[in-house]
Design a protein around this nucleic acid. Structure first.
Length: 108
DNA sequence: CTATTGACTACCG
DNA sequence: TCGGTAGCCAATA
């Protein structure tokens, strides 16, 4: 195992804690990690989450918009995965986002 | 070491 | 709600 950044690993672990059918925001994870202002780093970690068992598709921005769908294989894979979890996606945006929002800082 | 980048967020109009 | 701009921080080159 190469020298893995602690920050990335924490992001992966939190992402795995996301219940199925639920989603969270980058800022929420960053805040839980103690780096509230490092929301971009969470997304950055997701980019490196390839090869990991990290449900990156459950992590979206605070608007519930699938900003990272372009990083998945295909154009609508991320949306398909979320819909498979029972979520409703319209125009790359999660409907009832607040209803399915999962805050690690509160749930954990 | 410095510079650039980015799956963000907050603020402003 | 939408668009543009600024700030933020860690990783990468």
């Amino acid at each position: 195992m190469a020298t893995e950044p602690h920050f990335f690993d924490k992001c992966y672990q939190v992402a795995r804690q996301i219940p199925l059918g639920r989603v969270t925001s980058y800022g929420a994870i960053a805040t839980y990690l103690g780096a509230a202002r490092s929301a971009r780093m969470v997304g950055y970690a997701m980019t490196a989450s390839h090869g990991k068992d990290v449900p990156a598709h459950r992590v979206v921005n605070r608007k519930g918009l699938l900003t990272g769908k372009h990083h998945f294989d295909g154009t609508n894979l991320m949306q398909q995965l979320l819909e498979n979890e029972g979520l409703q996606i319209v125009d790359n945006q999660i409907q009832q986002f607040e209803s399915v929002f999962w805050d690690p800082a509160k749930e954990l």
